[in-house]
Design a protein around this nucleic acid. Structure first.
Length: 113
DNA sequence: CTTCTGACTGAAA
DNA sequence: GTTTCAGCCAGAA
């Protein structure tokens, strides 16, 4: 990239998250890696928290950790909203964990190319 | 300015 | 299989 990247990371995260297909899920590390910051997965999680203030709605509920756990469910208005939202898209969730996570996993670096 | 925390991950023990 | 450690970036105190 030409010049210096400033706060563009957050915007990039939002765009990728918005590109996640309905009924699919992704991980912080996958998004971070796609953006060229494989080890900045935490910043992606930060972006999600900040995503609440975004004008455009960001499907943050489709972003989980590597294990497929709904790590951010406590940040939702209700701890069950994230799970219900995933189930509404046909994604089975059990005990705060997505079942068959690998099956529903959507990697921007592979799918989006 | 320094220090700490955080919706994470990968490697090491 | 689990647990522990370190790294990475951005923002708040």
């Amino acid at each position: 990239m030409a010049g210096k990247d400033h706060g563009r990371f957050f915007e990039n995260v939002y765009e990728v998250v918005k590109l996640i297909p309905h009924g699919r899920v992704s991980s912080y590390g996958a998004i971070a890696r796609y953006l060229g910051a494989a080890r900045s997965a935490r910043v992606v999680g930060w972006a999600m928290q900040n995503a609440h203030t975004m004008i455009d709605q960001v499907p943050a509920h489709r972003v989980l950790n590597r294990q497929g756990l709904l790590t951010g469910r406590h940040h939702y208005p209700t701890p069950t909203e994230m799970q219900e939202r995933l189930e509404a898209e046909g994604i089975p969730v059990k005990d705060g964990q997505v079942q068959q996570f690998d099956k529903y996993f959507w990697d921007p670096a592979l799918e989006l190319l």
